[in-house]
Write a protein that binds this DNA or RNA. Structure first.
Lengths: 190, 190
DNA sequence: ATACGATTTTGATCTATGTCAAAAATCGGG
DNA sequence: CCCGATTTTTGACATAGATCAAAATCGTAT
């Protein structure tokens, strides 16, 4: 049987344990969904955490002027979730959309709680995921605080190079905090 | 005996437990330090997590051009730490400085591990703290991504109003990602 | 109280990036 | 493989915020 991507990721965080993997397989349900599918939409309370085994997703929100802003990209082998909504069980301002045909695994809050009860070590996985999200956010802040558009583009290129080829211009531009015209010009002058 | 601020904060996260509080008192050492004290400096591996019971601190870094940039302010009743350095035990690019005479409590990595071993519930506190840092970072990103300087100033005013009176202009400006001249002008025109 | 250094404000430019509009290129369904 | 729709590029101009310089104000040690 094929080794799940999720298992690989979890193995990197804690020492492997077959009973836990079996529970993970039980609680993380696999779904294949097509490009453009909205897997979570704003106004709802997040009921699942997603692990993306294949494909690409983005999380976005609408700012005060109604403009669609990409908050984050999630390529394969990443956990993703509207974290505050899921953890605090309150409505989210974010939506999640697939940019490619994708294979996801999703666990419900109940499923996660069953896992936590049965395997307390899952709390460590949760901490690791949160910590990972936090580091990522920290780097974004540093970039947005005092780098210019070109530098932020280069940073993104280094950190998530293939996103640049896989996501449309407008989404990348809003992620970087610039307009698509400016992004197009940055690309032009290299 | 005076009820510790740290205990109050922890009580809000989990159901109170006298044995845990005693252990917290044992592992979190109290120190009073004066204004301008550098409690952690860049290049080192963070050995402690701080809880600030009274006073004000800021975490900062130097960007490529050598400019001092405030990454975050920590007023009383907050946990603070160079989180990535502490959790991954690697050198930090951040420093932490006190902006007022302060009362801190600090726990070492060993102390935290002893607490975790004795009271597994502490892992939940850790998750809560990480989650809190993450939400804070998320809001920063949204602000820096598509709000103008004035809007970011107003957001800061709402979220951490008293910081505006307590921290010097230059630190607030770099936190907002603008120059001090621009911040002074924003203040002027209200 | 006084004076000196540090911080904040004000003024005059300059520049990166935004805005609006239109042309060019690319994509995806029939 | 073609055509309309979408995405990207290009151009002209506007503007928020940066930069550099100097003046005003504040805070603290004497």
């Amino acid at each position: 049987m094929l080794f799940m991507k999720l298992e690989e990721t979890v193995s990197a965080l804690i020492s492997p344990d077959e009973a836990l993997f079996e529970a993970l397989r039980r609680e993380f349900h696999a779904v294949s969904l097509p490009r453009n599918e909205l897997v979570f939409s704003l106004g709802n309370v997040a009921r699942h955490i997603f692990y993306i085994e294949k494909g690409l997703a983005r999380m976005f929100y609408y700012n005060e002027t109604g403009k669609d802003i990409t908050y984050e990209f999630f390529p394969e082998n990443n956990f993703m979730a509207p974290s505050e909504s899921f953890l605090e069980q309150k409505p989210s301002q974010y939506s999640i959309e697939l940019l490619e045909d994708s294979e996801l695994r999703l666990v419900s809050l109940d499923g996660l709680n069953r896992l936590l009860e049965e395997f307390p070590v899952v709390e460590k996985i949760k901490s690791h995921i949160l910590a990972h999200f936090l580091y990522q956010a920290n780097r974004r802040i540093v970039a947005l605080q005092f780098q210019n558009a070109q530098q932020r583009y280069e940073t993104l290129e280094q950190v998530k190079g293939n996103i640049l080829q896989r996501a449309p211009l407008g989404h990348i531009a809003s992620y970087l905090g610039i307009t698509q015209e400016t992004l197009s010009r940055i690309r032009g002058r290299k």
